[in-house]
Design a binder for these strands. Sequence first.
DNA 1: GCTGATACCTCATGTTAAAAGGTATATACA
DNA 2: TGTATATACCTTTTAACATGAGGTATCAGC
Lengths: 115, 115
Amino acid sequence: MKFQPELMKGATKNVILAVLAREDQHGYQIIREIRTRSGELLEYGEGSVYPALHALEASKFVKSYWAVAENGRERKYYAITVKGKRQLKNAIKEWKLYSEAVNSVMKGLRLSAGE
Amino acid sequence: MKFQPELMKGATKNVILAVLAREDQHGYQIIREIRTRSGELLEYGEGSVYPALHALEASKFVKSYWAVAENGRERKYYAITVKGKRQLKNAIKEWKLYSEAVNSVMKGLRLSAGE
DNA sequence: GCTGATACCTCATGTTAAAAGGTATATACA
DNA sequence: TGTATATACCTTTTAACATGAGGTATCAGC
């Protein structure tokens, strides 16, 4: 799905960390995993995910290693670090607070259909 | 509250529109209203709200007018337009989908406390 | 041989929130 | 009188970010 681009900002890295908290995956796999887990709603492009992964690695939230995938080819896998798990736990807490705060402002509006 | 700055991106304009959908307000008033309605969680600065208001006005989602406030002084008031209400309705729909999508990826993680 | 999917990457673009700075008025307090 | 604080408007700079487009390469299916 195509959201307003601004809406997509912020949660990307946390969503990637959440996927890696389940198991190590390579970049392309992460994109598919997010799409599947979100019910086809979050469709990140490679131009979003690869730079995010590099930034996460620079922050030591993930580390990467090359390994042979099931199809026998070399793939670059990413694994969440201890520091990354701490970050993810905090991010989930923040995300809950933030989304509830936004909801509480949006809530109870009467927007007549006619106008 | 101080969220990770990236998290704040995206919903700002929609939150402003939501506040204006209740009644016309001036900039400073909007900041306080968002803070109050979000339970002190969303604390936007003027450097975020004023540029956002100008962008909303350029998009014709709000219009502004000068009027005398209760204290007898001239204040710049903003009112949501018909176009802005349409935008807000759509934004609320998108926000719900988006936040649920993020939640569904974040959900069910076992993050052990020790690591 | 060609297409499409997989898989990695980078660069340019536009948007954005935040912080810091600027101006001005009014109130409260010493 | 002087000062601090809150109100109220604004702009500029900075850094981060998602996106789209571009690039390269391999492999399976037709």
